[in-house]
Design a protein around this nucleic acid. Structure first.
Length: 902
RNA sequence: GGGCGACUAGCUCAGCUGGUUAGAGCGCUCGCCUCACACGCGAGAGGUCAAAGGUUCAAGUCCUUUGUCGCCCACCA
C-alpha cells in the first residue's frame, strides 16, 4: 500500500518522538550478560557544563560519542556510558552565588547547609533541563546517573581515595604561596589562573639607608605590598650594593627597619638590581624569606583590602591603597621615578579579578610520583592520545608537574575528610568522623571546612562509577574503559588526573584511548562561551535545522587537530542532505504498493538471512547497476568503518554523503526508475527488492550520524515483528560477494558515456526536452557488449533518441564530438555549434594534455625514476600516458577538421 | 621566555603513512519547476597549495628559515 509522507523532512515533527523512546526502551542500557564474544565498548563521557544550558561545543562532543556508541552497539558490542562527573560544582556554585547576590544574599554568610539547599534546588531544576536537552540532541545516555556525583556513595569513594593518598604520604598540609581570589574568596590551582599581558608601571622607590643620607632604590610593580616588606635583596656579587649587605634600611611609610640581604635569585639587570622582599605576597619572595628566616607579614584581608598590618592604610582596597601609597611616597620625595612596564598579570579564570599571591595553609597532593607511571603508560602506548601532537603537550606538562592544591574555600563540593581537634590542634584524617582526637582524646572535633577541588572527584570517575573500591563485576567487565572523548582544553584538568589517580588506585590505565576533539569556535574565532555571549544555542539551531542536520554537520567538520568554525552554510548543506534522504524514502513509499502487489513481503526482506541474498538477480543475472551499487556500498562501508576506527568522523560522514547522494540518489534511483514501473513483473520485483535492500543498508549505515531521521524511516518501512529500533539493527557489512571491481569499472565507463553526452548537450544549449541521436565508437568489444545491455539506461539519462554503437574510431566530421581514450561520442544536430569556442576549448585541452604527456615522458625516460619508483606507480603512469596520447591524437584530428571546415 | 597549531578555489574547510590530471560544500556562471526532492537536476568557470631555500627519481605532504594569525604553558620584582 502506498504510504504518504510529508513533502519535506520536518525535524520538529519527527525528532521529539524518538529521544524519549530510546531512553524508555532502555536501548542503551549496558548488558553485562550480553553475548558479545567479549566485545566491550565503555566510554567515559565528559560532563555537560551545568551553567544553565548546553552550548554547541557539547553538540560536537556528544555527536562524536553518540556516533561511536551507536556504531559499536550495531556491531554487537556490549556498550556502556560512564556519564561525566560533576566538574560543574564550581560553576554551579558561581551561578547560585550570582543569583543569591541578586537577591541581596551574601553567599559567604549563608553557611554550608543553607547554601547547599539553594545549590541543590538549582541543580535539580537545571540538571533536569540539561537531561532534556541532551535527549533532544540525540544523546541516549541516562543522565540520571549523574546524581551519583555528590551523593553519599560518591562521598564515600572520595573519602576513601583521599584517606589512602594521605596515609601513603601523597597528601599533606602546608603553608605556602597560593593563588588567592579576593572575589571568590578561595584559593585557586595554577590551572585556574589565566595570564594576561597588561601595560603597567614600575615604581622606583627610595628606601633610606639607616644612619646615612643615602637611599637604596627598589623597583616594584605592586607598591602596596611594600608594607609587608621584611628585607631588600641584592645579588651577592653586585658591586654596586656589596657594601650594603647586612645593613638596614628604613621601610618608608612605616616605622620598621629591614635588613639588606644577598640572594642569588636577584637579576642584576632588572630594575635597579635591588628587590624589595615581601614573603607573604610574592612566590619568589616567599622562597627568599624561607631561606633567610624572614617574617611573613600579610597586609591584606581575604577580600583584597589592606588589614591592620598596613597601619594607616588598613581598610582600603588594595588598588586604592596602591594609589595612596604612591601619592604619599611622592609627597615624601621617596618616589624616584615611574616607568612604563609591560607585565603579565594573573587573573582568576572565573571572576576575572587580579589574583593575589598569598601565603596560606592548604592541602596539597604530591604529583611527581603519581605522574611518573602516568607518563610511562602513554610512552608505552597503553594509553593512546589522539591526535598525536597532544601527546607532547601531555608529556611536557606531566614532566614539569607541580604539587596540586587540593583544598578550596567553598561550600559546594566534597568536604575534606579531616578533623581538627579544638583542644590540641591535632588533625585526624579518616574515612568516617572520629569520635575523639587520637592524640589528646578530646571529643571536640571540627571537620575541616574546606572542600576538595572538583577535579579530585572527577579524577576518580572511570572507576568510582563502576563500584570501586569494591571489586565489582562492572569494574571487571568495563574497566579499563575503551575510550575517553573530551576537549583538549581539559587535558590537564581532568584527563591527566584521571590517568594518575586511575593508575594509582587500580593499577591499570583508566582508558585505552583518549580522543581529544576540536573546539567549536565562533565565526570570529573565539572559543564559544556562554559568559561571553558567543555561544551558539544548540536548541535554537535545533529548531532551525534539526538535530540530525546539526549532528551530521559537526561530524563532517570534525577533522582532528584544528578547531571548528561553524557556519550557516554547512548547516544548511547538512539540512539539505537530511531532506534528500527523506525524499529518496518518499519515492520508495509512494510506490510501495507496486512492490507489494508483486507478492513479496517487505518485512521478510529485513531479516539478516534475506539481506545476505542481495543483490537479487533477474532471469538474465544481476543487472550491472545493482552489482555496481552494492560494490559501491561495500566500499563505502569499509571506508566508514576504517574512518570511525581512527576517529576520523569527517571522512566517515563524507563517505556516507557521497554514497547516498551521489551513488544511490543520482545514479541508482534515476537508473532503476523505469524498471520499477516496468510492466514486466519479475523484473520490477527484482528492482524493488534491490532498491529496498540497498536503501535499508544505507539507512543502517547512516544511523549513527542521523539517528532520528533514520529511526523514523526505518519504522515507516515494514519491519519484522518485534523489531524495536534501527539502533539495535546490524550495521551493514561489506560482504565479500558485493565487491565486484569489474562492475565498478564498467559502470564508471557508462557514467562517462552519459557525462560526455550531457557536456555536449550543455555546450550546445540543447533544449532539455529535446532528445538527440548519439553515435558512440568504442573499439573495445567487451565494453560494447555491456553498453549494449545497458542501452536503456544510457538512452534515458543522456536523453537520447537513438544510440549507435560502432567499433570504429569516429571518422566523420560534423556534429558535436567528445572524446576520451576509450570512446568517442558524436551528436548530429542541425544547429551549428559555436566553432570558435570549440576550437578554443580544444586548444586549451591540447595544451594541458601536452604538458601532462611531456612531464610523464620525462619521468618515464628517467632511469633513476624507473629503478627507484614502485612498479605500481610506473605501470599506472605508462597506462595513463598511453591514454593521454590517444586523447591528444583525437583532439588534434578534431581540431584539424574544425579548422578545415572554417 | 618556552611549546603547539593554522596559512590549499571568492568563502568555510578536506587532503592519513610523500607517488599518476589537488578535492568537497557554499557562492558564482549557463541551462532546466524532468510525475522523490528548487533544501532539487544537469553542466561550467575558478588554485604558481603564504614566501624562499633544501632533501628525494618524485613534495600541498618531509627538513630549514621568514612572514602573518591564533592558542596553550611559564612565580622574573
Amino acid at each position: 500500500m502506498a504510504r504518504e509522507i510529508a513533502k519535506a523532512y520536518d525535524p520538529q515533527q519527527i525528532e521529539p518522538r524518538w529521544a524519549e523512546y530510546w531512553v524508555k526502551e532502555e536501548l542503551f542500557k549496558a548488558d553485562p550478560a550480553a553475548q558479545t564474544g567479549g566485545k566491550v565498548f565503555s566510554i567515559v563521557i565528559p560532563p555537560p557544563n551545568v551553567t544553565g544550558s548546553l552550548h554547541i561545543g557539547h553538540m560536537l562532543e556528544h555527536t562524536e560519542i553518540d556516533v561511536l556508541t551507536r556504531w559499536h552497539r550495531m556491531r554487537g558490542y556490549n556498550t556502556l556510558y560512564l556519564p561525566g562527573t560533576d566538574h560543574a560544582g564550581i560553576s554551579t556554585q558561581r551561578v547560585v552565588v550570582r543569583q543569591l547576590a541578586d537577591q541581596g544574599v551574601d553567599y559567604h554568610r549563608l553557611g554550608r547547609e543553607e547554601f547547599l539547599k539553594h545549590a541543590w534546588r538549582w541543580k535539580e531544576e537545571n540538571g533536569g533541563m540539561i537531561t532534556a536537552q541532551m535527549r533532544q540532541i540525540g544523546e541516549s545516555c541516562d543522565w540520571s546517573r549523574e546524581k551519583f556525583t555528590l551523593s553519599r556513595e560518591m562521598s564515600r569513594v572520595v573519602r576513601e581515595a583521599f584517606v589512602r593518598l594521605y596515609e601513603e604520604g601523597f597528601i599533606y598540609r602546608d603553608k605556602r604561596m597560593v593563588n588567592w581570589c579576593p572575589v571568590c574568596l578561595t584559593v585557586l590551582s595554577d590551572l585556574e589562573v589565566k595570564h594576561e599581558e597588561r601595560q603597567g608601571h614600575l615604581w622606583h622607590i627610595k628606601y633610606p639607608i639607616a644612619a646615612t643620607k643615602e637611599f637604596l632604590v627598589v623597583a616594584t610593580t605592586r607598591p602596596e605590598t611594600m608594607l609587608g616588606d621584611t628585607a631588600v635583596a641584592v645579588h651577592p656579587a653586585d658591586e654596586r650594593y656589596k657594601h650594603l649587605i647586612g645593613k638596614k634600611v628604613a621601610l618608608p611609610l612605616t616605622t620598621r627597619e629591614i635588613p639588606v640581604i644577598a640572594d642569588e635569585m636577584v637579576d642584576r639587570e632588572f630594575g635597579t638590581g635591588a628587590v624589595k622582599i615581601t614573603p607573604a605576597h610574592d612566590p619568589n619572595d616567599f622562597e627568599v624569606g624561607r631561606r633567610h628566616g624572614l617574617a611573613e607579614i600579610d597586609v591584606m584581608t581575604d577580600d583584597g583590602r589592606m588589614n591592620a598590618a598596613a597601619g594607616a592604610y588598613a581598610g582600603m582596597d588594595r588598588f586604592a591603597a596602591r594609589k595612596k601609597i604612591v601619592e604619599d611616597l611622592q609627597a615624601q620625595g621617596l618616589l624616584e621615578k615611574v616607568s612604563d612596564h609591560t607585565l603579565s598579570i594573573s587573573l582568576c579564570e572565573r571572576s576575572k579579578t587580579i589574583v593575589e599571591p598569598r601565603a596560606s595553609t592548604q592541602w596539597f597532593c604530591k604529583m611527581k610520583p603519581l605522574a611518573e607511571p602516568a607518563i610511562a603508560a602513554v610512552e608505552r602506548g597503553d594509553i593512546q592520545i589522539i591526535p598525536e601532537n597532544r601527546r607532547e603537550e601531555y608529556f611536557n606538562w606531566m614532566r614539569n608537574i607541580r604539587d596540586w592544591t587540593l583544598s578550596r574555600q567553598l561550600w559546594w563540593g566534597h568536604q575534606i575528610p579531616a578533623w581538627h581537634c579544638a583542644n590540641c590542634k591535632e588533625i585526624t584524617v579518616a574515612r568516617e568522623a572520629p569520635q575523639k582526637c587520637a592524640k589528646c582524646g578530646s571529643a571536640k572535633l571540627i571537620q575541616d571546612q574546606d572542600v576538595l577541588d572538583t577535579w579530585f572527584s572527577s579524577g576518580l570517575w572511570p572507576f568510582s562509577t563502576l563500584g570501586w573500591p569494591d571489586k565489582t563485576a562492572d569494574l571487571k567487565t568495563y574497566y579499563p574503559t575503551s575510550l575517553l572523548i573530551t576537549g583538549y582544553d581539559i587535558l590537564f584538568f581532568w584527563v591527566a588526573r584521571m590517568i594518575m589517580l586511575g593508575m594509582h588506585f587500580t593499577g591499570e590505565v583508566p582508558f585505552r584511548v583518549v580522543y581529544l576533539h576540536s573546539l567549536v569556535r565562533t565565526a570570529s574565532g573565539e572559543k564559544m562561551s556562554k559568559s561571553k555571549g558567543t555561544g551558539l544555542d544548540p536548541v535554537a539551531l535545533n529548531q532551525q535545522y534539526g538535530t540530525d542536520a546539526m549532528r551530521f554537520c559537526l561530524a563532517s567538520m570534525a577533522a582532528p587537530g584544528t578547531d571548528i568554525v561553524l557556519s550557516d552554510d554547512r548547516l544548511l548543506g547538512a539540512r539539505s542532505f537530511a531532506n534528500k534522504i527523506w525524499n529518496a524514502a518518499r519515492f520508495l513509499f509512494m510506490n510501495l504498493d507496486k512492490f507489494e502487489e508483486g507478492g513479496t513481503r517487505l518485512e521478510e526482506l529485513a531479516s539478516p538471512e534475506s539481506r545476505a541474498k542481495a543483490p537479487y538477480a533477474t532471469a538474465s543475472g544481476v543487472p550491472l547497476i545493482d552489482e555496481w551499487l552494492f560494490a559501491r556500498l561495500a566500499v563505502t562501508i569499509e571506508s566508514v568503518n576504517a574512518a570511525l576506527e581512527n576517529y576520523r568522523f569527517h571522512e566517515a560522514a563524507q563517505n556516507v554523503y557521497q554514497f547516498f547522494w551521489g551513488d544511490f540518489c543520482d545514479w541508482y534511483i534515476e537508473w532503476v526508475k523505469p524498471e520499477l514501473l516496468s510492466a514486466e513483473r519479475g523484473r520490477a520485483v527484482v528492482a524493488w527488492k534491490n532498491l529496498f535492500a540497498a536503501f535499508d543498508a544505507a539507512l543502517r549505515l547512516l544511523h549513527p550520524f542521523m539517528p532520528f531521521l533514520t529511526e523514523e524511516l526505518w519504522h515507516q518501512l515494514p519491519q519484522r515483528a518485534g523489531a524495536k529500533s534501527i539502533a539495535l539493527a546490524e550495521f551493514p557489512e561489506a560482504r565479500a560477494e558485493w565487491k565486484k571491481s569489474a562492475a565498478l569499472e564498467q559502470f564508471a565507463l557508462i557514467q562517462e558515456l552519459v557525462g560526455s553526452v550531457r557536456i555536449i548537450r550543455a555546450e550546445m544549449k540543447l533544449d532539455p526536452k529535446k532528445r538527440v541521436a548519439a553515435e558512440f565508437s568504442v573499439p573495445d568489444a567487451a565494453a560494447r557488449k555491456f553498453i549494449e545491455t545497458n542501452r536503456d539506461g544510457v538512452l534515458r539519462l543522456a536523453l537520447l533518441s537513438e544510440l549507435k554503437l560502432s567499433p570504429e574510431r569516429q571518422p566523420q566530421a560534423g556534429g558535436a564530438v567528445r572524446s576520451t581514450a576509450q570512446f568517442d561520442v558524436r551528436i548530429e544536430y542541425q544547429e551549428i555549434i559555436d566553432a570558435g569556442a570549440e576550437v578554443a576549448r580544444i586548444r586549451k585541452e591540447i595544451e594541458r594534455i601536452n604538458k601532462d604527456i611531456a612531464s610523464k615522458e620525462r619521468q618515464l625516460g628517467d632511469e633513476t625514476f624507473r629503478s627507484r619508483a614502485p612498479e605500481k606507480i610506473i605501470r599506472g603512469m605508462e597506462i595513463t600516458l598511453a591514454e593521454r596520447r590517444v586523447e591528444l591524437e583525437k583532439l588534434a584530428e578534431r581540431l584539424g577538421q574544425l579548422e578545415k571546415s572554417a
